[in-house]
Design a protein around this nucleic acid. Structure first.
Length: 643
RNA sequence: GCUGAUGUAGCUCAGUUGGUAGAGCACAUCCUUGGUAAGGAUGAGGUCGCCGGUUCAAUCCCGGCCAUUAGCUCCA
């Protein structure tokens, strides 16, 4: 049979040669490191014979699919350890994930598992790994498999999974004392697993359904080398230091107190300074691009949200309505209906379109208590919101314009390369969507065309659409690897209908505009969280709450230092001065800890020469400069929004 | 909302057979006037998350609540 390799090379092998033997024929080292193969793009066991011509790629731990096989096999290994330690345990699903694997298990009634038990399980796993048990694939017919799980093992979870595999080929994988219902592929044997760390233990609903049983989920990760595990754990530790909840506190950016309310962040002076700088930047850019700023109240009559459909749809995640003099009002959970009223404030002509209204609009949503998290998930937040009302013909260009400004913003903050783009479409099996299906399909088509014409690299996510229209979402990961949606663009044919928005066309008849909802950063809160983590608190000069610290060495230089501070402030820079009776080393240390971009050190020499000694944060001493030179440097940094 | 963990000074954390608490940093005062990451001394600072129970006695044991947190579910 002919085997074609990724580089196009074709080699001839006898029928029923295994991937392992093929790897051996290339090099012993490759065979030793191989974890599996890709056979015609499908994952395939290394030790499973190949019977016909195929394309193949040998996978090692360095390949994404290789990690998948490796970690999936590790989940089986953990299951074997758990089964030996806790007889009677039942198993749900145990897949590989982006970093490691997990297994959902149902423990026997008398067993309670806590984090303290994890080392014991790890030790058992290592013991079992050393046994070098081969992973053996076995094909069984469906009835036999059902008999095994339902009647012999009595694992109702596996039986339920099997229920869904009727008519498909059923395979078991066995290694050591453990057998699993599994499609594969797996490692040749357990000895390739050299280092293990079980990371956490948590609850997870069976099949992701909150009405069903809560299983115990154990997360872990394994590596083929001990050193790789150490590096991974060190990386996690470093990531935790960037966590915005820690830095937000250390750098006095925001606070949250239950006395005000959970999920209701309070912006401290440093955070407020940063927010205003970013908001001003965005405001100017949007005005430049033809947006008009508006301000609407934080409260609105409930009828607005009844008309839009948001009130019934999201009733349980809104602050409840308040009744005053027979009228019901709500904290606004979104800005759209307010902006629609602005549209309706006077008759609109096609000459007015596109009408682009933007607002830094603060909205309130009663998120579930278990969801709250620092600034990333809160109950009161400010959207950098806008609604664009345009004609059907203008739609695609407007969508493209929005995507352009979104990328412009993310580029400015150095984050464009970290952004993932997702087209969030409807899932036709659900009936949660409003509006005419034809308009939906049209909107989805137009979004796709716009994305393609812009050359966006996207994934399509069915079922992720808003109830009124499809979206383009911009997703980013935080310091500890959680994904968050930042920007969004949504095409909406439904709300213009519900609010009866119209414009007079060139033909002197009334037409329905289409509405684009968009928020480039999403919310200021979440964006600030990501920004803090992105820069690890080492903000670029133009954003830093305090840009410069002036550090006189002795009291003799205080007057000169104060004059310099005044001069810099007159130029608009944010400056602090440290005239405490402390040694210069101490003042420098604290300036560095506060992550202030520049420290200007002034001693006798500088005062006499009319210069300053400049120290750049994280870089160190960059030498003496005249006052004019530093003003020129700072001005340049501010204007170019760099460093 | 669900499952688990956690809650002690402004911050980071100690505090076991239950006898009303301690460190470092920060803060205040004094001494030190110094050259690129933390000088010294003294002092002040606590409803041990809140409420209830057991006990002669609770930071510690038990129950409830609140908050934070790891996940799950949800996310206009």
């Amino acid at each position: 049979m002919k085997i074609t390799f990724p580089d196009g090379n074709v080699r001839e092998y006898p029928v029923n040669t295994t991937g392992y033997e093929i790897a051996q024929s290339i090099s012993e080292g490759l065979a030793r490191n191989a974890v599996g193969i890709l056979l015609n793009d499908d994952k395939y066991d290394l030790m499973r014979p190949i019977s016909e011509d195929a394309n193949m790629k040998i996978l090692t731990f360095d390949d994404e699919e290789g990690k998948d096989i490796y970690w999936h096999s590790s989940a089986h290994l953990m299951a074997e350890a758990l089964q030996q330690l806790y007889p009677g345990i039942k198993f749900g699903i145990g897949p590989a994930i982006e970093n490691g694997f997990y297994y959902d298990v149902d423990l026997p009634e008398n067993v309670k598992l806590t984090a303290e038990d994890l080392p014991k399980i790890e030790a058992k796993m290592m013991e079992l790994a050393k046994a070098a048990s081969p992973y053996i694939r076995e094909v069984v017919d469906w009835e036999e498999a059902m008999h095994h799980w339902r009647d012999e093992v009595k694992d109702e979870y596996k039986a339920e999974l099997l229920e869904g595999f009727k008519g498909q080929e059923i395979s078991f994988y066995k290694h050591g004392t453990f057998t699993d219902l599994c499609r594969g592929a797996h490692l040749p044997n357990t000895s390739l697993i050299k280092a293990v760390k079980l990371l956490s233990i948590a609850g997870a609903y069976w099949r992701g359904d909150s009405s069903r049983k809560m299983m115990t989920r154990i997360y872990g990760i394994t590596f083929p080398k001990k050193k790789m595990l150490d590096e991974y754990l060190l990386m996690r530790e470093e990531a935790e230091k960037r966590d915005h909840r820690k830095l937000g506190k250390d750098l006095d950016i925001y606070m949250i107190t239950p006395i005000i309310g959970g999920g209701l962040p309070v912006w401290l002076p440093n955070g407020t300074t940063m927010r205003r700088i970013i908001e001003d930047f965005m405001r100017k850019e949007q005005v430049k691009r033809g947006y008009q700023e508006v301000i609407t109240p934080h409260v609105g009559n409930i009828n607005l949200y009844k008309t839009s459909g948001h009130y019934p749809y999201y009733a349980d995640s809104q602050f409840p309505p308040m009744t005053i003099e027979d009228e019901e009002y709500m904290m606004k959970p979104m800005n759209c209906p307010h902006h629609h009223q602005i549209y309706l404030n006077k008759p609109r002509s096609y000459r007015d379109l596109p009408l682009r209204l933007f607002e830094l609009g603060t909205v309130y949503r009663y998120e579930q208590s278990g969801e709250l998290s620092g600034l990333t998930r809160v109950r009161g937040f400010t959207q950098d919101d806008a609604h664009i009302y345009c004609t059907v013909e203008q739609l695609k260009d407007e969508v493209k314009g929005v995507v352009d400004i979104i990328y412009y913003f993310f580029k400015t903050f150095g984050m464009a390369d970290s952004i993932q783009t997702r087209l969030s479409f409807r899932d036709d099996s659900s009936d949660k969507y409003g509006g005419d299906i034809e308009l939906w399909l049209k909107a989805q088509r137009e979004i796709t065309e716009a994305a393609d014409e812009l050359g966006l690299n996207y994934v399509i996510a069915p079922g992720e659409a808003a109830f009124y229209g499809p979206k383009i979402d911009f997703i980013i990961k935080d310091a500890i690897g959680r994904k968050w949606q930042l920007g969004t663009v949504q095409v909406d044919y439904v709300m213009p209908e519900r609010f009866n928005l119209e414009y007079t066309g060139a033909d002197n008849t009334e037409h329905r505009p289409v509405c684009i909802h968009r928020a480039p950063l999403g919310s200021m809160e979440r964006f600030m969280a990501i920004l803090i983590e992105h820069y690890a608190g080492n903000f670029p000069f133009w954003i830093a709450p305090v840009q410069v610290s002036v550090l006189p060495i002795g009291s003799v230089q205080h007057e000169y230092a104060e004059q310099l501070k005044t001069k810099l402030e007159a130029q608009g820079f944010r400056v602090m001065i440290d005239t405490r009776n402390e040694k210069i080393n101490r003042k420098i240390a604290e300036s560095e800890q506060k992550k202030i971009p520049f420290a200007l050190i002034i001693g006798q020499k500088e005062m006499e020469a009319g210069t300053v000694s400049v120290r750049e944060h994280t870089k160190g001493d960059i030498g003496a400069k005249t006052q004019d030179e530093i003003i020129a440097l700072f001005t340049d940094l501010n204007e170019n929004r760099t460093v």
